[in-house]
C-alpha cells in the first residue's frame, strides 16, 4: 500500500477530526479541518480518479478560507472572549493550543496556567467516543469499503456528531457537519464512484460552507453594530422598518 494512502494517513484523518473537536482555538480547529481535507483527498484516490478526489481538497480549502475570513471579519476570538459555549468564563490548559483567553484570565488575576473545563469536557467526550468506537469496531460492516477506510469513515461520523452535540456555535457546528459529510462521502465514493454524485455532494458541501459563513457573520455582529460600521460591512439585509419605508 503506498505511503500516501496507507494507515498513517487514516490515523492522521482520525487525529485531525479529534483535534477539531477538542481544540479551543478556532484557528487551529480550522487548520485541522483543512489538513483533514488534504488527507481525505489522499485516501479518496484509492476509490476515485485523482481529479475527482482533488475536488474534496478544493472544496475543503475554499470552505476553510471562507470561514477563516468570516471569523476574522467579525473578530470571532474576541467575540468569544470570556465566554465558553455555555457563556461562562473559559479556562485553558496551555498557552499555545488551549488558551485563546490567557490574557483575560491574567487580567482577572486568576492563576495561570489553568485547566480548561470546556476543553477537558471535549477531551473526555472524545475519549468516551473513542472507547465506544474501539468497542464496536468489530461489528462495523460497511459494504464495499476497505476495512481501514470504513474505520476512518465511522470515526469521522462519530466526531461529526460529537462536534454537533457539543456546540451550537456556527463555526463548531459547521466543522461537525462537514466532518460528518466527509465521512459519508468517503463511504459513498466506494458505493458510487461516479462524477455526478461526487460533484453533487461537493457542491452541497460548498453551499453548506457558505451558509455557515453567513451564520458566523450574523452571530459575530450580535450586539456590535459599531464593529459592522468600523469594518465597513454593509448591514446584512434591510430591517423591517427599512423595507417598510
Amino acid at each position: 500500500m503506498p505511503l500516501l494512502t496507507g494507515p498513517w494517513v487514516v490515523a492522521g484523518v482520525g487525529l485531525c477530526a479529534a483535534l477539531m473537536v477538542v481544540l479551543a482555538d478556532w484557528r487551529l480547529s480550522l487548520l485541522a479541518f483543512a489538513a483533514q481535507s488534504v488527507l481525505l483527498t489522499m485516501l479518496s484516490t484509492r476509490l476515485l480518479p485523482l481529479p475527482w478526489a482533488a475536488l474534496r481538497m478544493l472544496v475543503g480549502g475554499l470552505v476553510a478560507v471562507l470561514w477563516f475570513l468570516s471569523a476574522r471579519w467579525v473578530r470571532w476570538g474576541r467575540l468569544r472572549q470570556g465566554e465558553g459555549e455555555t457563556g461562562r468564563p473559559r479556562l485553558s490548559l496551555s498557552p499555545r493550543l488551549l488558551i485563546p483567553l490567557s490574557s483575560r484570565l491574567r487580567w482577572r488575576g486568576e492563576r495561570w496556567p489553568l485547566l480548561s473545563t470546556v476543553t477537558l469536557q471535549r477531551l473526555l467526550a472524545v475519549g468516551l467516543a473513542g472507547l465506544l468506537f474501539f468497542r464496536l469496531q468489530g461489528r462495523l460492516r460497511l459494504p464495499v469499503l476497505p476495512s481501514d477506510l470504513a474505520l476512518a469513515s465511522t470515526w469521522l461520523w462519530l466526531m461529526g456528531f460529537l462536534a454537533l452535540a457539543l456546540s451550537e456555535e456556527p463555526l463548531r457546528a459547521g466543522l461537525g457537519l462537514l466532518t460528518l459529510s466527509a465521512g459519508f462521502q468517503l463511504f459513498y465514493a466506494a458505493l458510487e464512484p461516479a462524477a455526478t454524485p461526487v460533484g453533487l455532494l461537493g457542491s452541497l458541501d460548498l453551499l453548506l460552507g457558505l451558509a455557515i459563513a453567513y451564520l458566523m457573520v450574523a452571530r459575530g455582529l450580535a450586539g456590535r453594530p459599531h464593529l459592522a460600521r468600523r469594518l465597513g460591512l454593509p448591514p446584512l439585509e434591510g430591517t423591517s422598518e427599512e423595507a417598510d419605508r
Partner: peptide
C-alpha cells in the same frame, strides 16, 4: 431564516 438579523443563529442552524 436569519434574514439579516444579527444574534442567535439557532433556528437557521
Amino acid at each position: 431564516i436569519q434574514a439579516g438579523r444579527p444574534g442567535s443563529t439557532r433556528g437557521a442552524l
